[in-house]
Computed example of a mutant assay.
Amino acid sequence: MAQVVVEETRRRMQKSCTALERELGQIRAGRANASILNGINVEYYGSEVPINQVASISIPEARVILVTPFDKSALKDIEKALMASDIGINPANDGSVIRLVIPQLTGERRQELVKEVGKISEGAKVAVRNIRRESMDDVKKQQKNHEITDDELHDLEKQIQTVTDQSIKEIERITDDKSKELVAV
C-alpha cells in the first residue's frame, strides 16, 4: 500500500513534465513546428474538428508549415480557422495548399520568450513540489494510523524526494532545451 504512494507520485510528476513539454511546444521559436497548430479547430460539414483531421501538416523548410487539405473544398474553412486563431501568422492560400511562413524573431522577442519559458517552468516545479507535499502528507498519515513503521516512513520519504529531484531535473532539462532553441534560432 505504501509503495503505491511512490508510484502514484512518480506518475503524477511525469504528467507535470509532459504538460510542460506540451505547453512549451506551443511557443513559437522562429522555426516551423506543427504543434503550434494544436488546438485549432476547423468547421467541416457543420462540426468542429481538429485541423490535423482535415489536412496533412508538413514542414518542407525550416520556417514554413504546409497545410494540405485532404478535401480541397475544406481549403477556405481551414484558411478561415487559421486567420481566426491566435497564432499570429497570416496563411497564404495558393488554391491547393496553405503555407504558413514563420516570421524571424527579433533579439528582444527571443529574450521575452525565454523569460516566459522560465515562468512556465517555475509553474511546473511548483506543481511537482505540491505533489511531493501531498505524498509526504499521505505517508505521514499512514504512519500516524500505524499502517507503516517509522523506518518505512523514513524510507518512503527518501523515495518520494528522489522522485521529486528527478522530476525537477527533467523540468530543467526541458526548459534548457527550449531556451537554447529560442536563442539559437
Rank of each mutant, 00 (worst) to 15 (best):
I27Q: 00
I27T: 10
I27V: 15
R28P: 04
A29G: 14
G30Q: 09
G30P: 07
R31P: 10
A32I: 11
A32Q: 07
N33W: 07
N33E: 05
N33C: 08
N33H: 09
S35Q: 06
S35V: 13
I36Y: 00
L37D: 06
L37G: 01
N38K: 15
G39D: 10
G39T: 10
N41F: 06
N41P: 11
N41T: 10
V42M: 04
V42T: 01
E43H: 08
Y44R: 05
Y44V: 06
Y45H: 14
Y45I: 11
Y45A: 10
G46Q: 07
G46W: 03
S47K: 13
S47Y: 05
S47H: 09
E48N: 15
E48T: 12
V49L: 13
V49D: 03
V49P: 07
V49F: 08
P50H: 09
P50V: 02
I51S: 04
I51N: 01
I51D: 02
N52K: 12
N52A: 04
Q53E: 07
V54P: 03
A55W: 03
A55M: 05
S56E: 06
I57E: 06
I57S: 05
S58R: 06
S58D: 06
I59V: 14
P60G: 09
P60W: 03
E61K: 15
A62I: 11
A62C: 03
R63V: 12
R63T: 13
V64Y: 00
I65D: 02
I65T: 02
T68W: 11
T68N: 14
P69C: 09
P69N: 04
F70C: 10
D71T: 08
D71V: 02
K72G: 12
K72V: 14
K72A: 15
K72Y: 12
S73T: 14
S73D: 15
L75H: 05
L75P: 10
K76F: 13
D77M: 00
D77E: 11
D77Q: 10
E79Y: 01
K80E: 01
A81D: 00
L82Q: 00
M83Y: 08
M83P: 00
A84M: 02
D86M: 07
I87T: 04
I87M: 02
G88C: 08
G88E: 00
P91G: 01
A92T: 14
N93L: 00
N93D: 06
D94E: 10
G95F: 11
S96M: 11
V97F: 08
V97G: 07
I98R: 00
I98A: 01
R99W: 04
L100G: 04
L100Y: 09
L100P: 03
I102W: 02
P103D: 11
Q104H: 09
L105V: 12
E108W: 12
E108I: 14
E108A: 14
E108V: 14
R109F: 03
R110M: 06
Q111T: 12
E112G: 05
E112W: 03
E112A: 05
V114P: 01
V117N: 04
V117P: 02
V117T: 03
K119Q: 13
S121M: 08
E122L: 08
E122H: 12
V126R: 04
V126A: 10
V126N: 10
A127C: 11
N130F: 06
R132I: 01
R132V: 01
R133L: 09
R133D: 08
R133Q: 13
E134D: 15
E134A: 15
E134S: 15
S135C: 07
S135E: 07
M136F: 13
M136S: 14
